[in-house]
Design a protein around this nucleic acid. Sequence first.
DNA 1: TATTATAATCGTAAATTGGCGATTAACGAT
DNA 2: ATCGTTAATCGCCAATTTACGATTATAATA
Lengths: 117, 117
Amino acid sequence: MPDLSEVPFAEHVVELADLAKALGHPARVRILEVLAQTPGCICGDIVVQMPLAQATVSQHLKELKRVGLIDGEISGPRTCYCLNLEKLARAREMFTSLFAGIGCCGSEGELHGIDPQ
Amino acid sequence: MPDLSEVPFAEHVVELADLAKALGHPARVRILEVLAQTPGCICGDIVVQMPLAQATVSQHLKELKRVGLIDGEISGPRTCYCLNLEKLARAREMFTSLFAGIGCCGSEGELHGIDPQ
DNA sequence: TATTATAATCGTAAATTGGCGATTAACGAT
DNA sequence: ATCGTTAATCGCCAATTTACGATTATAATA
């Protein structure tokens, strides 16, 4: 996670790249799927559905939490994870906006400029 | 790029993660923007719009080419890069499908299962 | 043919990532 | 108070990523 105030790229570019990076590993995409499918979002339930050690899954969860795509709520000895739908919606908008500004009928000018927050 | 035939994740998960990884750096997102804006898609034109050395930009171009989001056509001493709109469309579909399967009104069952190729 | 311009590649260094076992912390339940 | 369960963190290592200068290859052009 580069220092946003220092990098010479536009903020929306950095934000999108950071989200993409978080999605840039099969385990993390899979975790999102599992969380979407599993009502009880206990960490252990995720681990058993994954071909990775508990420590590794925990790392991936941490990364997803870092960008805000999931939330983790400590509940006794266990942690309940769930999708952050607001953040997911924003991520979807940013990707949609990127592809719209890039791939489609030349609406030049502002490319995927989404108003922050 | 993990060996697709060996990894214990579903193919669409691996494919999406790989695309996301390619988008997971500000320079590469920026390159896509530049290519969308610039009619003449010469490599040098990209380099001058980027706060990175030529060698570094070339590496990022290579990564984007690896996943097929851009094409590079050698033309004399220079290389003309352009967006691969088909691949971009597929990428857009995969991301859309991911978010639809995850973030939205419970259409359970197949999550972002896009028929390959 | 020699020169120039362009861009890919090489070599390298620093930082980050991904993986795991082991440990720790936090809590519920004996 | 002790035990067992859960999950975060630590420590470590290998592999990858990112960045750059230098070099090389290619092909126009003088």
